[in-house]
Design a protein around this nucleic acid. Structure first.
Length: 478
DNA sequence: TTTTGAGTTGTTCGA
DNA sequence: GTCGAACAACTCAAA
């Protein structure tokens, strides 16, 4: 090993320069740094990045390369099985050291352990760091040493622990190696959709990359944090931070969020917002300790639950054509922007699982493909929570009424009118239940139920009874 | 070991 | 219109 041997920094879900411990450690050696990203579609399992995530990834990688170039470096892109590609790239670069930030998906843990082993066997040092979490899963333990399964005591324990360290500054300059290893062109990866280009609307809403993430955080803390506690439930208010995709791709880290918010000392609003960061931590805690969470019910008694198989209903839900305006608005927002407001996610998810009695895994799969913030831990934990199959889940008799929820949280109807324009001219009174509107009201609004907008695919009252019966019967082994 | 209090986000019904 | 109770029972976490 000589002082001139470069260090490879393997970027994964940490596509940023600031508060990136692996990168900072590599830069601190004073040696050349080779930033590497590997598109690994050989990873087994159903959880390869979905369509919307790929769109985001494309732009995020482009932004990362740009930022690296400004620091005198560049991003080396490779494709293939990471277990083979990372050691190969390291050898090609003549590196004696590889650094990365930890991911906590079960397959990533296994893969990274194996890669570290391979590297060390060929005399290359491998080091990993924490960039993704405030509190790594194995550091938070109950009194008896086990993992938490309930959010409130989990987050209390986190808050009682030493505060997360201050974020690291961005390395100013990265020394370039004498010879760059070969790389591929981002454009050749076909990450963006072509025909049809369903992502056309994404760019009007999102700015992927570290700069976009920082701007989003700053805008939120400066302008919206104070109103967060009461505004967060109203989807038309745009009161939430919309950091989820930036956090998933690691364009910003939770330590940066934590310290930006804490620096504001806004009392209840800050605590409320940070507890949402806490839910992200909790989901990752659960995934680490219960790696089966993405596929298997965490609660007993659901193995033989009579989920319905109903392709037409599933399709109607996916397309936003259930006849329930709030559900449809959410599903269309998802399709058009790759994102859905948290309150509406609960309503739409509850509708699929409880009104349609369709397996939560079908919903998780659809979200996985359509969300720009698709995250294995958050997505599985969220769906299991709604379905009542998860740790610390909603009680089974809690069934959202999409009409009541719409009237409560979208009282002015702005959200529904934005995404379901064909009923926009209905007066507020009928907007959330067009089927109940008098014929002349429908006619005046230009609405023909079953033609211009669907009639409800299920009746709320009947669906509710059916769900309660099924969920109650579960206990008797039906 | 046993006990005790608590547990993100709701709805409906009847007084 | 408003309010409180019922909707079940279970499991978790800490004392």
């Amino acid at each position: 090993m000589s002082d001139s041997d470069p260090v490879v920094v393997w970027f994964r879900q940490d596509l940023r320069l600031a508060d990136n411990p692996a990168l900072t450690a590599a830069a601190a050696t004073g040696r050349a740094v080779v930033p590497l990203y590997v598109l690994d579609d050989d990873t087994p399992g159903p959880w390869k990045p979905g369509g919307a995530s790929r769109w985001w990834l494309y732009h995020s990688l482009a932004a990362l390369d740009c930022a690296l170039r400004a620091a005198g470096s560049q991003l080396v892109l490779r494709r293939g099985n990471a277990a083979a590609v990372v050691p190969a790239a390291a050898r090609e670069a003549g590196a004696t050291r590889v650094a990365w930030n930890r991911c906590d998906e079960p397959f990533a843990i296994r893969r990274d352990d194996a890669i570290a082993e391979t590297l060390r066997a060929s005399g290359i040092a491998a080091e990993s760091f924490n960039a993704a979490l405030l509190f790594e899963p194995w550091t938070v333990k109950t009194g008896s040493g086990g993992p938490y399964r309930v959010f409130t005591p989990f987050w209390r324990a986190c808050l009682a622990a030493p505060a997360p360290q201050a974020p690291l500054p961005k390395p100013r300059r990265l020394a370039a190696p004498k010879r760059w290893p070969s790389g591929e062109r981002l454009g050749d990866w076909r990450l963006k959709p072509t025909r049809p280009d369903w992502a056309a609307g994404f760019a009007t809403v999102w700015q992927p990359g570290e700069e976009g993430a920082r701007a989003r955080l700053r805008g939120f803390v400066d302008q919206r944090l104070a109103r967060y506690a009461d505004g967060r439930d109203r989807p038309a208010d745009e009161a939430t931070a919309r950091l989820s995709p930036h956090l998933h791709f690691g364009e910003i880290g939770p330590r940066q969020v934590w310290h930006a918010v804490r620096g504001r000392e806004t009392g209840d609003a800050a605590a409320k917002f940070l507890s949402e960061i806490g839910w992200r931590e909790f989901a990752h805690h659960l995934l680490f300790h219960f790696p089966e969470m993405p596929m298997a019910n965490l609660r007993d008694g659901f193995e033989r639950f009579p989920w319905r198989s109903d392709a037409a209903a599933l399709r109607a839900w996916q397309c936003g054509r259930t006849g329930y305006p709030t559900v449809d608005a959410g599903m269309r927002e998802l399709w058009r922007t790759g994102w859905m407001h948290n309150r509406v996610r609960m309503i739409a998810a509850s509708f699929l699982v409880k009104h349609l009695l369709i397996d939560w895994r079908e919903g998780a799969r659809w979200f996985w493909d359509t969300l720009v913030d698709a995250d294995l831990a958050n997505n599985s934990a969220g769906w299991q929570w709604v379905a009542g199959t998860g740790a610390d889940a909603a009680p089974f008799f809690r069934i959202f009424n999409p009409v009541t929820q719409g009237e409560k949280f979208d009282a002015g109807g702005a959200y529904v009118r934005c995404w379901v324009p064909e009923i926009a001219r209905l007066p507020d009174r009928w907007l959330h239940r067009p089927w109940a509107a008098p014929a002349d009201v429908l006619a005046n609004a230009g609405v023909r139920l079953g033609e211009t907008y669907p009639a409800p695919i299920v009746d709320h009252g009947q669906a509710r009874k059916r769900a309660l019966a099924a969920l109650y019967g579960r206990r008797r082994g039906c």
